[in-house]
Design a protein around this nucleic acid. Structure first.
Lengths: 135, 135
DNA sequence: TTATCTGCAAACATTTTGCAGCGAG
DNA sequence: CTCGCTGCAAAATGTTTGCAGATAA
């Protein structure tokens, strides 16, 4: 039988969930720094493992930056598939809807004879606040 | 003064351009394997450096996979900004047009007060041929 | 000639894994 | 008591860099 191990709520995992609650996209290492900074002695590997399992459980979103780092962010649980508009300067992110995009993607795929489509859409920019600060 | 070094057409660079000509997205290491397989004794670092400089010169496209690898492909020179529909199985890729996407992206960005927008759109699937082969 | 390119190996950065002990259930 | 979780350090991966010698222009 295929039996999934059940997740235990440890102090470390709780700490991770807590810092994640403050929102924003950060790399695993950044979250780790944040935790240590807050007094935790949690290990980096543990953070990676926890973020991985949380991502599997769809409790965090993960996106890939241009330089190959993975960023994680607490996911609005219950909310289904969506995308983000992220500020390159301050890391803030808005959840955005793609009303026509999903349909469009399937359409293009079908037209080319492709099946099992997956898509990555990442929008980045400079938010209002950061724009005023920089220019 | 800022003086850009000018590119020399060496045997290795020519070999790289040649294998790139067969099309498809491949990782730097895959291109390297392909070259060695074809009798070249080119070094991996050279392949990385060449792909980098070709990418700077917009002669190759590069995309980032989910597992952090960078894939490179000869770019249809002259053709402007576009996106791809790539087969996860055989690596084939179609250039696709996004008529409404660019406009939509700017719209969403404006609505949220974001400027200097950049976007990444990557579609992957299983192409007709591979689908028949697998199922 | 001479500045760029090359191959090699070592350096890097990020993420994953092995292992012995800890601790939630 | 069990079995998953933890921290540490070591391994793995993908990419970049330093250097001495080769080579295009």
């Amino acid at each position: 039988m295929t039996e999934e191990p059940k997740t235990r709520m440890t102090k470390q995992r709780a700490a991770i969930v807590e810092v994640l609650a403050r929102g924003g996209f950060r790399s695993a290492q950044d979250w780790h720094d944040l935790l240590r900074h807050g007094g935790s002695t949690i290990g980096l590997a543990t953070v990676y493992r926890a973020l991985q399992s949380l991502a599997d459980a769809s409790e965090v979103d993960s996106v890939l930056t241009d330089n190959g780092e993975t960023l994680y962010r607490r996911c609005d649980s219950g909310s289904s598939h969506h995308h983000h508009l992220r500020c390159r300067v301050c890391g803030a992110a808005e959840d955005i809807d793609i009303p026509t995009f999903e349909a469009w993607a399937s359409g293009v795929a079908a037209k080319h004879g492709y099946a099992h489509i997956e898509h990555t859409v990442e929008l980045t920019g400079v938010c209002n606040g950061c724009a005023q600060r920089s220019f």
